[in-house]
Design a binder for these strands. Sequence first.
DNA 1: TGAACGCATGAGCAAACGTTCACATGAGAT
DNA 2: ATCTCATGTGAACGTTTGCTCATGCGTTCA
Lengths: 129, 129
Amino acid sequence: MAASSGELAGRDTCDATIIDTGAVQQVRSALSGIRSRKTACDIHGAIGDPTRHLLLEALAVMPLCVCDLAELSGVSSSAVSHQLRALRDLDLVAFEREGKRAVYRLADEHVRSLLALGLEHSAERGSGL
Amino acid sequence: MAASSGELAGRDTCDATIIDTGAVQQVRSALSGIRSRKTACDIHGAIGDPTRHLLLEALAVMPLCVCDLAELSGVSSSAVSHQLRALRDLDLVAFEREGKRAVYRLADEHVRSLLALGLEHSAERGSGL
DNA sequence: TGAACGCATGAGCAAACGTTCACATGAGAT
DNA sequence: ATCTCATGTGAACGTTTGCTCATGCGTTCA
């Protein structure tokens, strides 16, 4: 803490076998406050799969049932159901039964923001920014 | 054409019954404008790995060299180097040589936003929102 | 009531992924 | 110059993962 008051304090002391500089300790303490790292990983990992990403993008347009999502994504409805369950477990999507169909929708606006941010970054990257 | 761009469903998978052709077509055309889907997937997928997520979080605190990151993440510097390369290929991190060390930093503020959004969503999820 | 349909779930398999290991490169240190 | 350290890279290996197949459950309609 105290040793880390300088911006990059201790980074130059990477000598010998001990790497544990003030920088490492500072970062360690900064990261120790994060309690939901695993879930955040799971969320990004879920969005990172091409099929699930497509499902989420589709649901960002409008709520859809499993069969429509299967049609859109080009995989079996069984696969879609599996992936939707994964997304449901992370509270990225929610669903509602309508007769024999299950109509899925995005859970909230966070998901939309995550999708948008990823697309935004990749778009800028692609144009050589 | 709209329907032919990307890997959007060109074929009927559940060909027996089309539930809502209009909805499917509408979503299809809405998604056809997205050209950077694959890169966006890769970005989220990269952030989704626990090790890479930790590396990014650490770099969100301050720039760090490979050995510090290895110490922080608890994996070998070789593994860190591999993961940093993946992150570099996606322009999520950048690096700068300082003597025999390579000091990595976040590429831009988008990455910080992506990390923050994921953590925010997972935090709300955890508290039962 | 029975058949068809939409959806969910478990097992199994092939592909992808992350780590370790071994080695190469380049920059300080002796 | 030589040695050591920090890093980068390719190959191999064990694990994970997403798909398909088969099956079960609940709903709708004849």
